[in-house]
């Protein structure tokens, strides 16, 4: 990236917001900014005008690698025939409680 950037288009940053402390971060949209500091400030102004979040991550959009929809089947395949990974697969004899409360 150089200063020769055309006038209106700074790099794109994806914005992730934590809505409440203790909660996971979720994607909310994107902003353009010259650097990370400005990206954070822009994200605050655009996505948290009403205290929608307690913390923000900004990530350069081109740093994100995503699975593709074409992958959908084969990529997630390894997980779809392993029912024994779920607790409901197991039969527990009557009269015993194994759930932790």
């Amino acid at each position: 990236m150089t200063t020769e950037n055309k006038d209106t288009q700074w790099p794109l940053w994806e914005v992730f917001l934590q809505v409440k402390s203790g909660r996971p971060y979720g994607h909310v949209g994107s902003v353009h900014a010259a650097d990370a500091e400005q990206a954070l400030q822009n994200a605050r102004d655009v996505y948290t005008r009403r205290q929608e979040g307690t913390a923000i991550w900004v990530v350069p959009a081109d740093a994100i690698t995503a699975s593709t929809p074409e992958d959908m089947g084969p990529f997630f395949d390894p997980a779809n025939d392993k029912v024994y990974r779920h607790p409901t697969f197991y039969k527990i004899p009557k009269g015993v409680n194994v759930d932790v409360h």
Binding site: T3, N5, D7, T8, W10, A33, A34, D35, Q38
Partner: peptide, 19 residues
């Protein structure tokens, strides 16, 4: 838009300087 150009230029220059 045009009147905001100096702000955009300043932000780009600042980002470059820090880098």
């Amino acid at each position: 838009h045009d009147n905001g150009k100096w702000v955009r230029d300043a932000a780009a220059a600042y980002a470059l300087k820090k880098k």
